[in-house]
């Protein structure tokens, strides 16, 4: 998979006087292996952009190109297949299946793809072990802490070896320490395994772990900032930028 491109991406809800434009002709390009954070105030269209990039939603106008595929041209089955094989998702509320163990949850995308359970579980175990969960493999979600659950979710996002990982407020439901751990983990994944990561967050501290930040306001891209490599220690710069944009 090469670059990800969004061209004139627009999403509107409702019609007439109740029409709301969530995204307004957004053009962005994300390079392979890049870790990008999308920031902006509530309702600015961050999550909408992420959903459109992941093929979870259809744009009202414009299109998304992933690995040369125009997502708008794909039918439901093809989109489903693309999501299963090429994209990994991480959600704010982890969204683990409560009745499955950590390893089964992490193995889910490959299991859904028809890989034999033993093979799927071994792949999942590999990722979970890398994330320090080797002693929690058989635990159910309700037996894990928030940070552990999110690590399972990240393992799940990586198990099918996708080239793009979309994370929607992955630390929104975690305490500061766990949030840092997760953000750091995502950065490592991008760096060590060359995965492209697009993360939506409203937390400047977390956004600071990315290589680049795209700022959205009222459905439009208002700024893009390439961060210096300060190992996540440039949160103040991000906050400063946000202040400027807010004004």
């Amino acid at each position: 998979m090469s670059n990800i491109q969004a061209e004139k991406l627009t999403k509107t809800y409702g019609a007439g006087s109740t029409k709301i434009t969530a995204l307004d002709h957004v053009n962005i390009t994300i390079k392979e292996g890049e870790f990008v954070a999308i920031m902006g105030p509530s309702g600015c269209g961050k999550s909408t952009l992420l959903h459109l990039l992941g093929g979870l939603d259809k744009p009202s106008e414009g299109h998304v190109l992933i690995g040369g595929h125009n997502l708008t041209d794909l039918n439901d089955d093809k989109l489903t297949e693309l999501r299963r094989r090429k994209i990994g998702f991480i959600f704010q509320f982890f969204n683990l299946i409560p009745v499955l163990s950590a390893v089964e949850n992490a193995a889910l995308p490959v299991t859904l793809d028809g890989v034999k359970p033993a093979e799927a579980n071994s792949k999942a175990t590999e990722w979970l072990t890398r994330f320090g969960l080797s002693d929690r493999l058989m635990n159910r979600p309700d037996q894990l802490s928030g940070g552990q659950q999110q690590r399972v979710a990240i393992a799940r996002a990586l198990v099918a070896d996708p080239e793009l990982i979309l994370a929607d407020e992955p630390t929104g439901n975690l305490d500061t320490r766990s949030s840092d751990e997760i953000a750091s983990l995502l950065r490592d994944v991008s760096k060590q395994y060359g995965r492209t990561i697009v993360m939506v967050t409203h937390d400047p501290r977390i956004a600071a772990y990315a290589n680049r930040i795209i700022f959205l306001k009222d459905g439009k891209v208002v700024d893009e900032t390439l961060l210096e490599k300060k190992n996540g220690k440039n949160a103040e710069d991000v906050m400063e930028k946000m202040k400027q944009l807010g004004d």
């Binding site: 489903t80 999501r83 998702f89 969204n95 859904l112």
Partner: peptide
């Protein structure tokens, strides 16, 4: 939510 997540992860209809 579970169904949505499964769909997002690539479970077909």
């Amino acid at each position: 939510r579970d169904i949505g997540m499964l769909r997002a992860l690539g479970a077909n209809r």
